[in-house]
């Protein structure tokens, strides 16, 4: 994504390129590069499965990481002592139904659907839901200010855990 960066000129194929690139980084466990896609004031959220519409800051949500905790999550996942992900799962993300929901001068709100397959020890689970992104334009390209993964599963059965980045 080079050239003139502005919310007004951003097209859906641009957004798709961005999201597909992000998904590839995650599936390839290039988590430090993935982290570089975020702004300093970012938030990564997964709401409580039984309260998908409630603010993760005020509910017993699944994930509510600001930048410092998101960095720690990435540092942790790269360690062999992050037992739930050692050895690493294989993951495959299918991202579809990408839409630009709104755009103002410096921020774009994007929606997309996801299916994330996690395979490990001969066991496969699928996380299904939708993403909400707030993307903002910085000097070196588009960055994620807010990334929210809203699960359709209301019980994490048989998943047991979300040890990967969703």
């Amino acid at each position: 994504m080079t050239g003139v960066l502005s919310a007004a000129t951003l097209t859906r194929p641009d957004v798709e390129d961005f999201l597909f690139h992000e998904a590839a980084l995650l599936d390839e466990w290039r988590l430090e590069e993935w982290l570089d896609l975020f702004t300093i004031d970012c938030v990564y959220e997964v709401p409580a499965p039984d309260r998908p519409d409630d603010d993760p800051a005020e509910t017993f949500a699944l994930i509510h990481d600001r930048r410092p905790m998101l960095e720690q999550r990435v540092i942790r996942l790269k360690k062999p002592t992050a037992h739930a992900e050692f050895p690493h799962s294989r993951t495959r993300r299918l991202i579809t139904n990408v839409r630009i929901i709104s755009a103002d001068s410096d921020q774009v709100r994007v929606g997309a659907n996801f299916a994330v397959f996690r395979v490990r020890n001969g066991i496969e689970v699928t996380y299904v839901g939708r993403y909400e992104y707030d993307l903002t334009c910085e000097a070196d390209g588009w960055k994620i200010r807010r990334r929210k993964a809203i699960l359709d599963q209301d019980v994490l059965d048989p998943h047991g855990k979300i040890s990967i980045i969703l």
Binding site: P47, A48, P49, D50, R51, D54, E58, T59, F60, A61, L62, D154, V155, L156, D157, P158, H159, G160, K161
Partner: peptide
């Protein structure tokens, strides 16, 4: 607190 962790 609102929000329940149901998992298996």
């Amino acid at each position: 607190v609102h929000g329940t962790h149901n998992y298996s």
